[in-house]
Design a protein around this nucleic acid. Sequence first.
DNA 1: TAATCATTCAACCGATCGGTAGAATATTGT
DNA 2: ACAATATTCTACCGATCGGTTGAATGATTA
Lengths: 126, 126
Amino acid sequence: MPRPHSSQAAPTRPSPAHRPRLNRVYAAIADPTRRAIVAALAGGELNVGSLARRFPISFNGVSKHVKVLERAGLVRRRVRGREHWLRLRPEPLREATRWLEHYREFWDARLDALEAMLVGTRGRRP
Amino acid sequence: MPRPHSSQAAPTRPSPAHRPRLNRVYAAIADPTRRAIVAALAGGELNVGSLARRFPISFNGVSKHVKVLERAGLVRRRVRGREHWLRLRPEPLREATRWLEHYREFWDARLDALEAMLVGTRGRRP
DNA sequence: TAATCATTCAACCGATCGGTAGAATATTGT
DNA sequence: ACAATATTCTACCGATCGGTTGAATGATTA
């Protein structure tokens, strides 16, 4: 019987465990090159070529990374003639932040409670 | 010449592009089973066995997932006799949230600016 | 001491990943 | 019409991933 050791309530679950979108967003930004692409695209739209020129890997490598970001919903592509212009999309990042913040806040509260308990105990129970 | 198309400044880079810790944190939470483990562990400490019993995969599968979370710094292990007790660690999540929020805030500001521009234009330039 | 329990370790499997190279497909400029 | 440009598609490579199984290690209990 795995006694839960703490009586603090668990946070209400923020996600039904199987969200392919969320999986893809986290997997996408787990790669440093893709995070750098996000950073580059935050400066404004770029086409694939001028984006690729900023990275030490091959054009095709960057093209593949862009596709991953696209599948995660983080990048939108606008084809204009022979060039494909890429733009960031903020929405999926918001959902991704939400999951993280949920647990971060929970832990912050935990640490605060612990500190309060220690401070409160200090002079009161000699 | 990849004209940046927007004159808005890019956000100041929040990470020097190659942070194995951050990579590991995002890769860790990209898997739904591992996110569920995080959720389970938020309810208090658990040993590997009682944790594994909550999941439809094998004991060893869960053990491996725990190891991934550990390497990402999200879980701490305390060996007590033959059982290993697992506890969440908030610190890496904070760094992970910071990167996401950085861009989220940037985009929010962008959307706000766009909206303001549209509203401002509406009655002023007929 | 022997049996049981909690756990890791090692090997394996098929799938996916990051990356490259080369061929194919459009679009543009001359 | 032709050459150059921008990009994807296909195929390949070695590495890692999620998962399983079986054996090994170590602590507890009888």
